[in-house]
Design a protein around this nucleic acid. Structure first.
Lengths: 247, 247
DNA sequence: GTTAACTGTAAACGGTGTAAACTAAGGTCT
DNA sequence: AGACCTTAGTTTACACCGTTTACAGTTAAC
């Protein structure tokens, strides 16, 4: 068989059409339209039942869209981090964090679909290179450079220590040495701060001007400076945040 | 006219039927069913078009349901606070906070409808005795007793100070004296912590065991002890939290 | 006692997810 | 090359959805 066949094989065709379906669904989602099977099919010049060759149900299709969105935001976050120097993990973490917030605020429907959905929570379970894993990787490289103090498992409650010994949700943390398990707790706490603040901003449960001027968001990051050992770099990071937010 | 008429007047009938409609919709929501007009009408032995005498549209009906849920959780929070001594505002705030979390975790669909909904965000705007106002009232009485230090407007960024001078979202804060405006900022930060943590737990973006054992939730409350001047009472409050969570 | 407002029904329209039968083309095997 | 199976798409059909319209019965008001 020719490895670079000019005409696509059937599996490639299937994957390409699947991608077009997901893209059409996302386009409908962000443009305020209903993400119905018929609307998607109309966008592609097909009929609705044809979509059942690519998704088992409407719910399954929405799940595919959510996974695609999660992968998309993960890549955007990675690109934002890569715009910082590779020997500056703090700057990379800040850049990724700000990018996550800006994306969430400008794509509220997509954010709601992926991050505040009771039904579609399989995003974390799937072994995809999702948002959560990327943040955890950023934090680990940050620690490698700054070596800020982290709690030992003995310092924490026994139940919590047991959880950290074999974590489940970030599936890539299975081979973390014992003395660094406390870093997973720092990670969870930092992620909860970021997730919570962004969700609050997206759903506008504060004064809109506070969102606009990012007061809560910046205060949240400043809170994280101490547990992440970034107090010395705070002035520099503050300027970086202001620069990134102004774009 | 007889003031206590045995047969209800038409306005009362209308209000009663409206309440039954909202109750049926909530029952369908929590039982996983679709909250469709036809399903609601079926529950009440009516036909779907009859509901248009009580709600202008399906979206409007959902908004009524959201408002009812918000009022319900507000009253539940108030009852939880009233179960504490009236001269213990810290205990009352803790009790209300724990109650809010427990309610959110056991009624995820209702929580999602009211607190993480892009469309239905009128709950705050309506002059209802909602959740937000109640928490702000609790925090103000807490300050009246403990008089913990709060930032002055001069300490904060000019833009933030300007927002706090005439806040919009908690509409009941119009007559707060100048020297206590910083408390509004403390309130917003505390609310963002509570909202963010509970939302994270509801949508399970952490290890389920961390939710089960309330590690993040308790850590979040302990974080709030210092800005709310509760470090001295922390041991007592810790025991209270454990007691409330065990119920 | 008449009139108007209110509360419900029945019928209908366009739209939705989904299942079944069917057709045409593509790929695979002997 | 021809037989055969798989795939991707269609058409048709069903039950359900939100919503509108026209209509009927009850109830309050003048």
């Amino acid at each position: 068989m020719t490895p670079a066949s000019p005409v696509a094989t059937r599996a490639e065709q299937h994957a390409a059409t699947t991608a077009r379906i997901v893209a059409a669904a996302r386009s409908l989602l962000v443009n305020g339209g209903e993400v119905s099977l018929r609307a998607i099919a109309r966008e592609l010049g097909m009929t609705a039942p044809a979509l059942y060759r690519y998704a088992a149900s409407h719910e399954d299709l929405v799940r595919m869209v959510a996974i695609a969105i999660d992968a998309d935001v993960a890549s955007r976050i990675a690109e934002a981090a890569d715009r910082q120097r590779s020997d500056d993990p703090a700057g990379r973490l800040i850049a990724a964090t700000v990018e996550f917030r800006q994306w969430a605020l400008t794509n509220r429907e997509e954010f709601a679909l992926v991050f505040t959905n009771v039904d579609v929570d399989c995003v974390d379970e799937i072994g995809s290179p999702g948002t959560g894993m990327f943040f955890s990787a950023l934090l680990f490289t940050l620690w490698e450079k700054h070596q800020f103090p982290i709690p030992t498992l003995a310092d924490l409650e026994p139940g919590l220590a047991e959880i950290l010994r074999n974590p489940q949700v970030p599936a890539d943390l299975t081979d973390v040495p014992e003395e660094m398990r406390g870093l997973v707790w720092v990670l969870e706490r930092a992620w909860s701060r970021l997730y919570g603040t962004v969700t609050l901003e997206v759903f506008r449960h504060v004064d809109p001007r506070i969102v606009e001027q990012a007061h809560l968001f910046r205060a949240m990051i400043e809170d994280q400076a101490e547990p992440l050992g970034l107090v010395d770099e705070l002035p520099r990071l503050r300027a970086l945040i202001a620069d990134l937010l102004a774009r």
